[in-house]
């Protein structure tokens, strides 16, 4: 049944902005993004909202709903009481361009800093052969839709802008873990060391594993347990554990 929902939407740009109140019709089965679109269509034609698939797979409509980092297309109106005021703000960690649209280029800079997959020498694409059991850990991380909600909620950069230079955030540490665990990655043979780079260039030590990245992931990737902690353990193997360092063999 339709009802009038109360919305507070952040309107503004990089210089100034404020929360503004709106009343928008909500129908059964709708999500927050539907209301933002109705608001745009009926009251605020200049409202800036980034969106694309409306199916939780493109990662475009990331915002904060009642203070929690969410995909607006996957946040059902039925989880709120009818009289409740729903606050929608842009992601707090990134510079805002306009209204709910952020400049997420920080993430693209960090993405470029992760050396790409390095296949074994002499192996051409199409010749890769792997056991499913070996590659399945890395495949979990391939579910990432790059909505950057994990980056948004991570307090290391959310509360400390100065850390952005030295910390790549959970999304890209997960990317390092994905490649570090990959059965065919030969980066180490090529002279690299992904675990050491995770510690050094990507700032893994800044992560204090408070699991907010895992909590907000719309793909339910176990970012902390399956990528960040295993990566920390691999760093401990190489750097802080003289026993495993002494017995360290070529990666198997």
């Amino acid at each position: 049944m339709a009802y009038q929902a109360h919305l507070q939407v952040w309107r503004g740009d990089a210089d100034s902005g404020e929360l503004r109140d709106y009343t928008v019709e909500a129908n059964e089965g709708e999500v927050v993004l539907d209301l933002l679109h109705r608001l745009q269509a009926t009251q605020c034609p200049d409202l800036a909202v980034r969106w694309n698939c409306k199916a939780g797979k493109c990662g475009s409509c990331s915002a904060e709903v009642n203070g929690r980092p969410r995909l607006t297309c996957m946040t059902r109106m039925s989880v709120f009481a009818e009289g409740e005021t729903i606050t929608v703000t842009p992601m707090r960690t990134f510079p805002v361009i306009k209204d709910l649209v952020c400049d997420v280029s920080y993430n693209y800079v960090k993405a470029r800093e992760v050396p790409s997959f390095t296949p074994p020498e002499g192996l051409e694409p199409g010749e890769y052969r792997m056991q499913q059991v070996d590659v399945q850990r890395s495949q979990e991380f391939r579910k990432c839709i790059e909505c950057f909600l994990c980056q948004d909620t991570c307090h290391v950069i959310r509360d400390h802008e100065e850390n952005k230079e030295s910390f790549s955030g959970p999304r890209f540490l997960m990317r390092v873990a994905e490649l570090e665990m990959h059965p065919l990655d030969s980066y180490e043979e090529a002279g690299g060391n992904r675990a050491e780079e995770a510690r050094g260039e990507h700032g893994l030590g800044m992560c204090n594993i408070t699991k907010c990245c895992t909590d907000v992931c719309p793909e339910h990737i176990q970012i902390t347990d399956n990528s960040l902690i295993p990566l920390k353990e691999r760093v401990a193997d190489q750097r802080y554990d003289p026993i495993t360092r002494f017995f360290r063999r070529k990666k198997d």
Binding site: W10, S16, E18, N66, G67, T93, P95, V96, C102
Partner: peptide, 12 residues
């Protein structure tokens, strides 16, 4: 450059 909000959190 970030969205200016005075509240420490908007979580309800």
């Amino acid at each position: 450059g970030r969205a200016r909000t005075s509240a420490r959190t908007l979580r309800t």
